[in-house]
Amino acid sequence: MTMKAIDQNDVYIQQKGYVVSDMNGDKVMMSIESGKYYNLGQTGGRIWELLVEGNTIFGISTVLSSEYSVEQATCQLQVEQFMNTLLKEGLIVSKRD
């Protein structure tokens, strides 16, 4: 079985069904179904917010590089790696699915 990887051209959106909260600036969430607790941290929390209505890696990194002191290329690479983790955990889905 091949694991899905993030596609740079795809639009991704939050998977529904998670209890989400802010804790000392970190975004934390819990899945009753899978019995898992997630801490996305501050930057991850901001990425999560940008996935509410669907977004691409490029779209997210463009917003983040305007808000944070980071180069767009570096930001895009790290956002892609992070979103790959979210996808594997089932926290986000492609709008094409």
């Binding site: 819990m30 019995g35 898992k36 607790y37 997630y38 801490n39 996305l40 941290g41 501050q42 930057t43 991850g44 990425i47 983040l64 305007s66 808000e67 944070y68 002191s69 980071v70 930001c75 790290q78 956002v79 992070f82 983790t85 979210l86 955990e89």
Partner: peptide
């Protein structure tokens, strides 16, 4: 107008099994 940018932290996901 200069908007001060926040410090960048590499995003990471911490996972804990509730069970």
């Amino acid at each position: 107008m200069n908007i001060e940018k926040k410090e960048w932290q590499t995003p990471s996901l911490e996972v804990l099994e509730i069970s």
